[in-house]
Design a protein around this nucleic acid. Structure first.
Lengths: 241, 241
DNA sequence: GAATACACGTGATTC
DNA sequence: TGAATCACGTGTATT
């Protein structure tokens, strides 16, 4: 009924009490309804009244428009706070473009994180891939994945294998569903936060080493599982993808 | 040097080839530089030239401004596609507000997902809490967390416990770091996708049952760990938070 | 017809 | 200087 989206100056003040006193040089009080020289020479009470009314309407109009602008700019400045880029004010257009790319990135990450990232697949898999883009560390990092049937022994196998590799683990996550499991490790090649520049080739060789190690773990688990299946259960799913 | 953000009509066309032919009633060709009646009565080649120049500048100005508006509105309509709300066009301000809340939500989720969600804490913990808000399923769901020192036995303990409870698991994730582990289960109370309305009290009782079960698992692990520590290692960290 | 939202052209300002 | 952005008031359409 009133403001089409429930907005008012109150909301505006609540959410946007920052970034004022900027380049907004509006006086916010100059009413300008005084002594407008009548454009035409006609005189008369009716015309005067009508004229004053129109003038008041015009004033209302411009004020409403100003409010609308303030509302939009307020949200814009909030967004400007989000992208949190360097130093001084960005273009409106550039700002919006950044917001768009940020939303895209966030959505992509959310998608990746929520579905499929840690849900075990139906096919066995070992994978090692770059993981740089995540938080912009500038540090070379990789994500290793192993997905297979769950067996208690495989965990200690993995642990000893990773310990032997002496990786700089960022995180290690595991997910189980039904009888499948998926294990994800993120590791980097740089020790501290300061050494941003790292030896890329060394990283890649480490990645291939990790891949091989995980592959042998999977292989071992696979054969032991095949043995178990052959001895106790009828044949079931099994094969690398 | 040129465009402060590297933008041009090319970029604009690349990214924004949708939402044209809208309410934009501009003719885009009316040059209006013809036959402007001279405002003052002075005549002379110099004045005429100057006047034409000023007029051309004005035209350039307004055109540039129009391009700027188009750029902004283009990005705005891209964002409008993101919020993907119902039916017909939203306010610019409302749209931006929605974008803001969406970015906030996405950031919150990303934060939660990336750091702390699956990173084991230093203190032991069992927790069962509602998990409704995640994807808006409208189905009552809970997230159960158990965090403690890693021991191989605890996994089979957890498995048997959860199997006994016959939960409707959505996902089950585990994370290890150093010698700590954290295990997260998400489970629901409704079997299929269609039965959105579920028995809330039943859910809550299930939640408390799950909490108790996990608590006993933790307790068992804790005592066995204490035993192991007492027999082999000097005393270490141990206590519920 | 009041209220609202948008596009437009223009003056001011900055680099 | 010109090219860029911005805030402003106004015209116009939709409700």
């Amino acid at each position: 009924m009133f403001s089409s989206s429930g907005y008012g100056d109150l909301e505006l003040l609540n959410q946007c009490w920052h970034e004022f006193g900027g380049s907004d040089g509006v006086s916010r009080d100059g009413l300008l309804l005084s002594s407008s020289s009548s454009p035409s020479e006609r005189v008369g009470g009716k015309n005067e009244n009508c004229e004053a009314k129109a003038l008041a309407a015009l004033k209302n109009h411009s004020e409403a428009e100003r409010r609308r602008r303030e509302r939009i700019n307020c949200h814009l400045s909030t967004l400007r706070g989000f992208v949190a880029s360097t130093h001084h004010k960005m273009d409106k257009a550039t700002l919006l473009a950044k917001v768009i790319s940020q939303v895209k990135e966030l959505k992509k990450n959310a998608m990746e994180a929520s579905k499929g990232f840690l849900i075990p697949m139906e096919t066995d898999e070992v994978k090692v891939e770059p993981y740089d883009t995540k938080l912009g560390y500038g540090c070379m990092s990789y994500m290793a994945t192993i997905c297979c049937d769950y067996q208690p022994e495989i965990l200690s196998d993995l642990k000893t294998t990773l310990d032997a590799l002496q990786l700089q683990l960022v995180k290690s996550e595991m997910s189980t569903l039904e009888r499948r499991m998926k294990n994800v490790f993120v590791f980097t090649c740089c020790k501290g936060d300061n050494s941003n520049i790292v030896n890329v080739e060394a990283c890649q060789s480490i990645a291939s080493v990790v891949h091989k190690a995980l592959g042998s773990v999977l292989e071992k688990a696979s054969t032991s599982m095949e043995f178990a299946l052959r001895t106790s259960y009828p044949n079931k799913r099994r094969r690398m993808c």
